[in-house]
């Protein structure tokens, strides 16, 4: 009786030990050198896998940094500190990251624009867009179903009163929301700029005003007050050239519909 148990025990134990020894040997002899650089770089990346760098994720970017000659300042969420760490590991000159921030070009909340239909479908902008391009009289504005909210890796977006709002403090500038927006109203611009056009409506003044009280009417007042020639009204809509804008805020004061706004400062 004892013999049987002993034999079974020994046989299984020996199989186990043989497997263990084989695996131990294998892990020693078949060990693949994981590139130390890649591991180090991966550790200092933020790991949100947002894809703002243009790679499939933080792992991919780390690999590319270690093996190919890739720019060290592509990680926008990580900003300067991460870029500096990466540059140190790779032994190259650190480059500054141009921190970006997302901005919703719409202020057409439920109080100022009207609906021409009642939407009961899937709560997704992409789906709402497929039915007559949304239910608001303004055909250009935010649909308010929150596709951007869903993709945001840092929970910086919330839809309030029918329009998406971006929390400047949380936004990492990855640009995923801009890609998700079917109306293309989310703009990514350098974080230093603090002025934003809150409208995407290219209809003529009077028509635009009818669809939404907060619309840009293309009056060109901002264009004339801008001291640095940064605002141009094209297609009845103001556009800010952020390479020229000095954040003076005169356009925001002059705008009659208050669709140009000084954005909240980032703390």
């Amino acid at each position: 009786m004892i013999e049987n148990i002993l034999i079974a025990f020994l046989a299984v134990a020996s199989v186990g030990i043989i497997c263990a020894v084989l695996l131990a040997l294998a892990s020693h002899f078949l060990h693949v050198e994981e590139d130390e650089k890649t591991l180090k770089i991966r550790e200092c990346l933020p790991g949100v896998n947002c894809g703002a760098c243009g790679y499939a994720g933080c792992d991919d970017y780390a690999k590319a940094l270690a093996n190919d000659n890739v720019k060290t300042n592509l990680c926008i969420p990580g900003s300067d500190s991460v870029a500096a760490e990466i540059a140190e590991i790779l032994g190259v000159e650190p480059e500054d990251v141009i921190e970006m921030i997302a901005h919703v070009r719409c202020n057409g909340n439920c109080n100022v624009t009207t609906k021409f239909a009642h939407y009961q479908g899937i709560k997704s902008c992409a789906a709402a867009m497929m039915v007559y391009g949304g239910i608001y009289d303004c055909r250009y504005g935010c649909l308010g179903c929150g596709d951007c909210e869903k993709v945001c890796p840092s929970n910086a977006i919330c839809v309030h009163n029918g329009v998406a709002h971006i929390n400047n403090k949380l936004c990492v500038g990855c640009g995923l929301c801009a890609k998700a927006c079917p109306k293309n109203i989310i703009e990514i611009f350098p974080q230093v700029s603090r002025v934003g056009v809150m409208c995407n409506n290219t209809l003529k003044g009077a028509v635009a005003r009818k669809t939404c009280k907060n619309a840009c009417i293309g009056c060109k007042k901002c264009e004339s007050v801008c001291p640095s020639d940064a605002i141009k009204v094209e297609n009845n809509l103001a556009h800010i050239d952020y390479s020229k804008c000095t954040n003076c805020g005169k356009c925001a004061e002059a705008c009659p519909t208050k669709c140009i706004k000084l954005l909240e400062p980032i703390c």
Binding site: V12, V15, G16, C19, A20, L22, L23, A26, S27, L30, V32
Partner: peptide, 15 residues
């Protein structure tokens, strides 16, 4: 036991 060890081994070898 054997299959688990084997798959681990194959994975290392393939890598």
């Amino acid at each position: 036991l054997v299959i688990a060890a084997l798959v681990q081994f194959i994975e290392m070898a393939l890598k």
